[in-house]
């Protein structure tokens, strides 16, 4: 598949190049949003919904890791990015489903509630794009 590319492979295979820069930008915004939101929740009303707010903090941490590792684009950081994005996908599907099934336990309090409805469902699409991007930029000779 890569043989038809005209660009030098070095610049097209990195996670932080081309469309990858947009992905990193979106991840960065979610890192900021989720972390800030979790910080406010944990500081001001941790007692109200400890589980939801700890998940909020976990989401923020995962977005931070994904942002940094995708922005670095080294081989080692790719592995870490893969793990982080996989956890992100599992997280948004799990929390999303639980928030639909049991809204009492998961009020609209995390970025992942109802599959990220408060953020235009971007949290649901983002990990899929992230994994697709990692696949698209995979090294040719491992």
């Amino acid at each position: 598949m890569n043989g038809v590319r005209t660009e030098p492979t070095g610049s097209t295979r990195k996670t932080n190049s081309g469309a990858g820069r947009v992905l990193v930008a979106v991840y960065g915004i979610f890192a900021l949003a989720a972390t800030a939101r979790a910080s406010v929740q944990l500081i001001t009303k941790f007692d109200e919904a400890p589980l939801a707010y700890l998940l909020s903090a976990l989401a923020g941490l995962i977005y931070i890791v994904a942002t940094i590792t995708l922005a670095r684009g080294t081989r080692a950081s790719r592995r870490l990015a893969f793990v982080a994005i996989l956890i992100e996908l599992i997280g948004v599907i799990t929390v999303g489903t639980l928030s639909v099934v049991d809204p009492e336990a998961f009020p609209r309090a995390t970025v992942w509630s109802i599959y990220g409805i408060g953020y235009g469902f971007v949290p649901l699409v983002l990990p899929i794009l992230g994994l697709a991007w990692l696949w698209h930029t995979r090294p040719v000779n491992p």
Binding site: G18, A19, R21, V22, V24, A25, G28, I29, L32
Partner: peptide, 26 residues
């Protein structure tokens, strides 16, 4: 207030069509 400055920096490191999308996202 920190979004545009970071996006500005990030958009200018590698200048191509995606720089515009980075600014648009911010």
């Amino acid at each position: 207030v920190i979004l545009i400055p970071i996006a500005w920096f990030w958009a200018n490191v590698e200048r191509n069509r995606f720089s515009g999308i980075v600014l648009a996202v911010a």
